[in-house]
Design a protein around this nucleic acid. Structure first.
Length: 784
DNA sequence: CAGTGAGCGAGCTTCCGCTTGACTT
């Protein structure tokens, strides 16, 4: 047994550090936080200075037990959790749980897992910083209060059956998406006519080439046409040529958020997929820690990268760079994300290869020379008027970092000018290039694009909201709660005009383009919109984009010892809690109601609103004598944008198509999409069939086909006991009502011959040994 | 699997941030 026990947060780190420190140290991991606030009564004693009640969560009991026994056998325990607020708190919890004295226990920190860094840390231990620990307690307590007081307000004021939630981070994330959606809905596209002319000249090899020059923009078609007219019969002369050297600089190495963004743009990965793959690479020792906000590279890594660049591309491509974090909220407990060894240019595993190579290239590029370009701008005079045309070209003089890597841009950061850069033939002043044609093309302005998962992470990071370890979970939470959906949107066709001047004649054409199409974007649901409105109205401070930044400033004061954490929380809690009570008492239930018009048949009001089961349209009122009519909104529709006609269309279901085999065939949309009901059985309508227009003739083959498929799935039915033996994707299984039970392997082969007694025994057996997952989520006992 | 839609009120839900497994109805 080693005489020293050193505790870190991550087990992969523990392994590496143990190798570095040798036999004097046993290095163990505590797997992150080992204690958390109890859930009953918020786990906070509000009347007693916000005193927190901590417990060891069930899934941490094993780790804690092991740490306790190892600590007991060791002479000395060293705390080496991450150097940030959370890490300091973890160390303090370790003291509390392992019975260590915070006034004497050695606390060490390092920002990189390298031999010199760790050895230096061990030489200079310090003590626990209780101010920093208290800043973390303030953060934890505030988040618990906000989450556990706000969520129940939603339960009371919303008539939805699912478990709603609100919190400092998630509610603001939803707000961003809701506001972007409304911005897009309110957007009015404006069109301008953009002028472009094409000329021919000769390149250096005397081959004819075509190049493009741009002119001005015109708001009105007639102005553009007038300009084209004025150019009839003109000659064009190169008046001025400017050649400017420019350069491009590489981006900093990856942090969690920039990795998520680039993997989304270049590889199309969701943030959770990126994190899953990165975790695999980290655990197999291929990359450094993947949850980081630091762009820093260790000295040893810089040396390694330099060598790799020299070997691969030569000295000229090296440019050593130190990157600084732009983000004030960064806590920089780790390095940037980089390969552990640069001479491994790829990995064997096909799952993780593309992500690894992305990280490798970005890391290389970050220490490489600027790319050098030459930009040429030629001005071309028109003999018949005073306007000039501009031709631009760009030539790469020295590749530099572009040899390995170029960062992609988000849709919203791309400007029109960016795609204008191509090659220009050599031109001289006074030259008269041959005119081919000139076009004025109608172009429409575009609204901001909807967020992708990754661009939302970028925005949250800019606002200082959330941490590298929570970006992916936050995005899945807002989707799980039904506030946000990730989906595609089909574009709509739009006409645009093109005016053409060629061979001294002007002609006009109309073309079509697709606009507004989006892929894998985040859309707010009606639920997300109404909840956001409600929170905005009653809890303005929490929903403010600057709220996190503001309280971070106060946490910093606590960490600096200028303020007591309980006082800070008290100042927050008193007004906040008043708002909660006031809202519970006075706020109306959340309905999100919107009036659409009157029903021509009954003359009653048609409204769109939130119901118990989601967004719907309603004709009439519950207080009317006659019951109101209801219809569910389609997935793509929204309370805010649905038109009167679209709403009335929804009442065309259910449709009775007529009879087949003497029973009605009825089409409707249910919980699982469009279906047809016939003879007490239900069949899903495929995507290609529209419930509003299908005919009886189209339905009959579907019914007979599905009926047969259902029969083939059935192995045996015990009519009396209402037990079925069915063939599923995982093999035969037992079905009783809505519940499924597994069949033991040996019984699966002879499923058709099983007796009712045998089946009943298997059901009992399955009930007695439920799958482990079910056992884990079993209801916990509650105190009386 | 394929209904429902108000309000009452059992007894449930819920936060953010640290970390990995165990898990395949």
């Amino acid at each position: 047994m080693a005489k020293n026990l050193l505790i870190v947060e991550s087990p992969a780190k523990a392994k590496t550090i143990e190798k570095i420190l040798g036999s004097d140290f046993e290095v163990k991991s505590c797997y992150g936080h080992i204690r958390d606030l109890e859930k009953d009564d918020m786990g906070i004693d509000l009347k007693n200075n916000y005193s927190p009640r901590y417990i060891i969560p069930e899934d941490k009991e094993k780790v804690v037990k092991e740490l306790k026994s190892t600590a007991k056998k060791s002479d000395e325990v060293w705390l080496a959790t991450d150097e940030d607020r959370e890490g300091e708190a973890i160390s303090w919890h370790l003291c509390e749980v392992l019975g260590l004295d915070p006034k004497t226990t050695k606390r060490i920190v390092f920002h990189e897992i390298t031999k010199p860094a760790i050895e230096a840390a061990v030489r200079t231990p310090r003590l626990l910083d209780m101010n920093l620990v208290n800043a973390q307690q303030a953060r934890r307590v505030l988040d618990r209060i906000v989450g556990f007081e706000l969520s129940p307000v939603l339960w009371r004021k919303m008539s939805m059956r699912n478990s709603l939630s609100a919190g400092r981070v998630q509610s603001v994330a939803v707000r961003l998406i809701a506001e972007r959606e409304r911005e897009i809905n309110a957007f009015k596209a404006e069109s301008t006519f953009k002028l472009e002319a094409w000329f021919s000249a000769h390149d250096t090899a005397k081959r004819p080439v075509t190049f493009k020059a741009e002119g001005g923009k015109y708001k009105q078609a007639q102005d553009a046409e007038a300009f084209l007219k004025s150019c009839i019969g003109a000659t064009y002369t190169v008046k001025d040529i400017q050649v400017k050297p420019t350069k491009k600089t590489p981006s900093a190495p990856f942090t969690t958020s920039t990795l998520q963004q680039e993997a989304s743009r270049k590889l199309g990965y969701s943030v959770s997929k990126t994190m899953l793959l990165a975790q695999k690479l980290y655990e197999s020792g291929k990359i450094t820690y993947m949850r980081t906000d630091s762009v820093n590279l260790s000295e040893t890594a810089m040396e390694d990268i330099k060598k790799a660049i020299e070997k691969g591309y030569g000295n000229r491509f090296i440019q050593v760079r130190k990157y600084k974090n732009k983000n004030e909220s960064a806590q920089e407990a780790h390095e940037a994300i980089r390969p552990t060894y640069m001479d491994e240019t790829s990995v064997d595993d096909s799952d993780t290869r593309r992500l690894y190579e992305l990280i490798w290239k970005r890391t290389m590029a970050s220490q490489m020379a600027d790319a050098e370009l030459e930009k040429t701008i030629a001005k071309i005079d028109i003999s018949t008027n005073k306007e000039t045309l501009t031709a631009q070209g760009e030539v790469l003089k020295f590749e530099g970092f572009l040899k390995v890597y170029m960062e992609d841009r988000d849709e919203e950061d791309i400007t029109e000018e960016d795609d204008a850069e191509g090659m220009l033939p050599p031109l001289v002043v006074g030259q008269e290039p041959a005119f081919k044609e000139m076009k004025a093309t109608e172009r429409f302005s575009r609204p901001s694009p909807r967020y992708t998962e990754a661009s939302l992470v970028k925005k949250l990071e800019e606002l200082g909201i959330g941490r590298p370890s929570t970006y992916a979970p936050t995005i899945s939470t807002v989707q799980k709660r039904g506030y946000v959906e990730r989906r595609d949107k089909e574009g709509v066709k739009r006409d645009y005009r093109v005016l053409l001047l060629a061979k001294d004649k002007i002609s006009s054409e109309t073309h079509q383009e697709n606009t507004g199409a989006e892929k894998a974007k985040l859309f707010p649901t009606d639920l997300g919109l109404v909840v956001t409105d409600f929170l905005n109205q009653h809890f303005t401070e929490i929903m403010d984009y600057g709220f996190t930044a503001k309280i971070e400033g106060e946490f910093d004061e606590v960490a600096g010892g200028q303020q007591k954490w309980t006082k800070m929380i008290d100042e927050f809690y008193n007004p906040f809690h008043k708002d909660v009570e006031n809202t519970l008492e006075n706020a109306e239930r959340i309905k999100g109601e919107r009036e659409l018009g009157l029903d021509p048949v009954s003359g009653k009001k048609v409204v769109a609103r939130m119901g118990r089961f989601g967004p719907m349209v309603q004709i009439g009122d519950v207080s009317d004598e006659e019951k109101p009519r209801f219809a569910k909104l389609k997935n793509t529709q929204s309370i805010e944008t649905i038109s009167y006609d679209e709403a009335m269309d929804l009442f065309r279901l259910p449709r009775n198509l007529g009879q087949f085999e003497d029973t009605d065939v009825v089409v409707n949309i249910g919980r699982f999409g469009p279906y047809v009901a016939h003879d007490k059985l239900f069949y899903s309508l495929g995507k290609e069939l529209d419930p509003y227009s299908v005919t009886l003739e189209e339905m009959i083959p579907l019914i007979t086909e599905k009926r047969q498929a259902k029969q083939e799935r059935t192995i045996k039915v015990f009519e009396k006991e209402k037990i079925q033996l069915l063939r599923g994707p995982y093999g035969p299984y037992i079905k009783i009502g809505l519940r499924n039970f597994r069949l033991p392997k040996e019984a699966q082969e002879r499923a058709a011959d099983l007796t009712i007694e045998e089946v009943k025994a298997f059901v009992e057996e399955a009930k007695a040994n439920p799958p482990k997952k079910a056992a884990k989520s079993a209801p916990k006992k509650k105190k009386a």
